Simulated assay, not measured.
Amino acid sequence: MRVRGLGAAAVAVGVVTAVAFVLPSTATAQPTIQLPAAAPAPGWAPAGSAELHPGVQTVTTGGGACTSNFVFTSGDRTFIGQAAHCAGTGQATETNGCDSSTMPVGTAVTVQGDRGYTTSGTLVYSSWVTMQQRGEADPNTCAYNDLGLVELDRDAVAHLNPSVPFFGGPTGLSDAGLPAGALTYSYGNSPLRQGVAALSPKAGVSAGDVGGGWGHEVYTISPGVPGDSGSAFLNDSGQAVGLLSTLNLAPLPVSNGVSDLSRELAYANAHGELGTLKLVRGTEPFTATPPGIPLQDIAPPAGPPAGA
């Protein structure tokens, strides 16, 4: 059984940590991925004063609260990413995007920025909605494709910077997955952390790719908690590699299920009807050791327990 439950506000921590899911054991042939070039960074708000950036909270009407991941553009339109399941309306056990209940495209999303800044956006793409409309049948795509895009208006974009807090980047988009042992870096912003910023950045180590490359199993010092869903994951070069989708208790205990952004973005470009979506590079350089954060707080864990 697979459980989402990292984003919906109605899901309690005890529920998430009490249920496990089993990963698919078979992989389908990997599709050819055409990666769009990352968009340049024009007149973004300065990183140090921007109220909106990857990692701010999104609250989907009828769905739940999540952490945003990266910034995307298509032409003159600007989007901030979240997990598609943030708009889910069913039980935490509904994780198959091809048949899970969800709010529709067009749903209002509240974006809660820094220093009290709040704006309204619109859910303009959901991998779950798109897969259901298309009748998607590939089991790995259905299980792991978990991307939603929230469009921001011009006034909100003036407050936006595309850099991931603390770590900087993304420096581009990775299509290499996260093989076992690869290091990764993430920024979660669950309300359960009560605004303690030092608890948000964390490093992790991959336990390997799953679902034919559509997903990755990652260990971090502290696993994702409810509200962290959608969090950005970077590789050790600062490239965008995925977003937080689930918390796993089996077969790998307390690991994070990370969906693969390159595949999700390729799917959105092929079927999302938003034009050519491009990941926006951060204005700040990537660093694996952000200043002001104790190294022990972001040191990658040793990995899964022996025999896991």
Rank of each mutant, 00 (worst) to 15 (best):
R4K: 09
G5N: 01
A9Q: 01
G14R: 10
V19W: 09
T26W: 14
P31D: 15
L35E: 07
A37C: 13
A37G: 13
A39H: 05
P42H: 02
G43V: 15
A45I: 08
E51S: 15
H53R: 06
H53Y: 06
P54Y: 07
T67F: 11
S68W: 07
N69Y: 12
T73S: 11
F79W: 06
A87Y: 03
A92E: 02
G97C: 04
A108S: 06
R115F: 14
L123A: 00
Q133L: 12
G135E: 12
E136C: 02
N140M: 10
Y144T: 02
G148Q: 00
G148T: 00
L149M: 11
D153R: 13
V164D: 09
G168M: 05
G168L: 03
T171A: 15
L178N: 01
A180T: 11
P201T: 01
V210D: 04
G213R: 00
W214F: 08
V218F: 04
Q239R: 13
Q239S: 10
V241W: 01
P253H: 08
V254H: 13
N256M: 12
S259N: 13
G272N: 04
G272A: 05
E273N: 11
L274P: 03
T276R: 06
R281W: 00
E284C: 10
F286G: 00
T289K: 09
P291M: 02
G292D: 05
P294E: 08
Q296C: 04
A299S: 04
A302S: 03
P304E: 12
P305S: 15
P305R: 15
